[in-house]
Simulated assay, not measured.
Amino acid sequence: MSSSWPAHLDVGAVRFARPTANYEEVLAFYRDIVGLRVLAQWRNHSGYDGVVFGLPGAPVHMELLQFGESPRIPERDPENQLVLYLKGPEALAAACKRFADDGQTPVEAANPYWTDHGAVLFEDPDGWLVVLAPWTFE
């Protein structure tokens, strides 16, 4: 398996975006509990509030957007996930402690794959799941 992008697709970064109806809560969750770095943030730009999170040294970003007077998000689904692959059981324990210190409680995975492989899941303020998996793909 190749570890580089195809020659015709010279990608420098990847950003995933999704809506939120709980801007302040998800901002605090991903910034303060998960610990992601805020790369950009704006309020009322053409009616949009947004924040872009990134991982240090990695060109992967997550953008959360809120728009309109009564922001709406898609219905909750157990497969709406941000999966963070951690570098082993010690890294998993440290991450879980940070969540626990904030009063967060793990939630049950709908897909048994995660539990069978030692992952721990937490729910963000919109009901999307953060999966902490104690392995990486090499």
Rank of each mutant, 00 (worst) to 15 (best):
M1N: 08
S3D: 14
W5Q: 03
P6W: 03
H8T: 10
L9Q: 08
D10T: 04
V11R: 07
V11Q: 11
V11M: 14
G12M: 10
A13P: 01
A13Y: 13
R15A: 12
F16M: 15
A17D: 14
A17Q: 15
A17C: 15
E25C: 04
E25K: 11
E25G: 03
E25N: 08
V26P: 01
L27E: 05
F29Y: 15
F29T: 04
F29P: 06
F29E: 00
F29C: 09
F29S: 01
Y30G: 01
D32C: 05
D32G: 03
I33E: 05
I33C: 06
V34W: 08
G35Q: 07
G35C: 05
L39D: 15
Q41N: 07
Q41V: 04
W42A: 08
R43K: 15
H45E: 15
H45K: 05
G47I: 07
Y48H: 11
G50H: 08
V51Q: 13
V52N: 04
F53T: 06
F53A: 08
G54R: 07
G54W: 06
L55T: 05
P56Y: 07
P56I: 01
P56F: 03
G57H: 14
A58M: 14
P59R: 02
H61Y: 15
M62A: 12
E63M: 15
E63T: 13
E63Q: 12
L64Y: 13
L65C: 06
L65Q: 09
L65I: 11
E69L: 11
E69M: 12
P71H: 11
R72V: 15
P74W: 10
D77K: 03
D77S: 12
D77F: 07
P78C: 08
V83H: 00
V83R: 11
L84W: 04
L84R: 09
L84A: 05
Y85S: 10
L86K: 07
K87G: 08
K87R: 14
K87H: 10
K87C: 01
G88F: 02
E90W: 01
E90I: 03
A91H: 02
A94Q: 14
R98Q: 14
F99D: 10
A100I: 00
A100L: 02
D101Q: 13
D101A: 04
D101H: 02
D102E: 15
G103E: 11
G103M: 12
G103H: 11
Q104V: 03
T105G: 00
T105M: 10
V107G: 03
V107Q: 09
E108H: 02
A110C: 00
A110Q: 11
A110D: 13
P112W: 03
Y113C: 04
Y113M: 10
W114I: 02
T115I: 09
D116S: 11
D116I: 03
H117C: 03
H117R: 15
H117G: 06
G118Q: 05
A119S: 14
V120Q: 00
L121A: 06
F122D: 01
E123W: 03
D124L: 08
P125H: 09
G127N: 06
G127M: 09
W128M: 13
L129A: 01
L129N: 09
V131P: 07
V131Q: 09
A133W: 05
A133S: 08
A133K: 01
P134K: 03
T136A: 06
F137M: 06
F137S: 06
E138M: 04
